[in-house]
Design a protein around this nucleic acid. Structure first.
Lengths: 122, 122
DNA sequence: CTAATATATGAATATATGTTCATAGATTGA
DNA sequence: TCAATCTATGAACATATATTCATATATTAG
């Protein structure tokens, strides 16, 4: 029996059974945790952002190189980078006219890598 | 040096260096992969859905129990369950008037668990 | 059969989101 | 200094999304 099937082991229905409702409350994540978790996953929920993130995983890249690599407009890229910046998921370094971005969050790095594994094989 | 800092090792900027641009193309995920990846993360990008998913991780739960547990309206829950159903992330089993839902995707299970670990500790 | 219960659904609405367009700011080269 | 380059930003717009409201469907109880 795999993990997905194991979920069927415990069945919860009806308010009559107090123990079952308590079991649910034990696993239910609280609203604040849900918000913070959603914030992380939302950063990974857009194809354009994911393509940018894939480039920033192991490289420090300037905006123009991102532009030519992914084929998005400079403005769209800059807006997405600001979004990632505000979540502290990337760091940036200014050098002359260029600004170099790099992924700066190992949680996102791991989630991205794990998600990619799943999408690529089974 | 941690993983996040390691990303700084390689710097890419400028179209003059062909090798650098090729290095980016190697790690850039293709649009189809980005779409499928975004689809998974998007399912995990809403606090209400995350709370429902937390309940369905290890239990098979009927809609009414979900309602009392998370405090959402029956309609809102039903809409979110349809969303998860259409992505084949949950399975459901009808028994009389009740419908029991359970998480049915180990990828989502792993991503949720890993994300939660990160949110809870460091 | 009828009423009550459990779940699903479509329409409407408000908000969020990603992109474009135009433009601003900053740095360098001539 | 002036023009060119690189990046950031605000407004506008179109689309997506989550919820509510009203209602439909299905099953069971009486």
């Amino acid at each position: 029996m795999n993990d997905a099937q194991a979920a069927q082991d415990i069945t919860v229905c009806g308010d009559d059974d107090i123990a079952e409702q308590e079991a649910l409350q034990d696993v239910l994540i609280d609203p604040q945790t849900a918000n913070r978790l959603a914030e992380i996953f939302k950063a990974l929920s857009d194809p354009s952002r994911l393509r940018l993130i894939s480039l920033l995983m192991d490289h420090e890249v300037c905006v123009h190189s991102l532009e030519t690599a992914v084929g998005m407009s400079q403005s769209a890229i800059s807006h997405q980078l600001r979004y990632l910046r505000q979540l502290n998921l990337v760091r940036f370094r200014k050098e002359g006219r260029h600004v170099y971005y790099a992924l700066d969050d190992d949680h996102v790095r791991e989630l991205f890598a794990q998600g990619l594994l799943h999408v690529e094989h089974g």
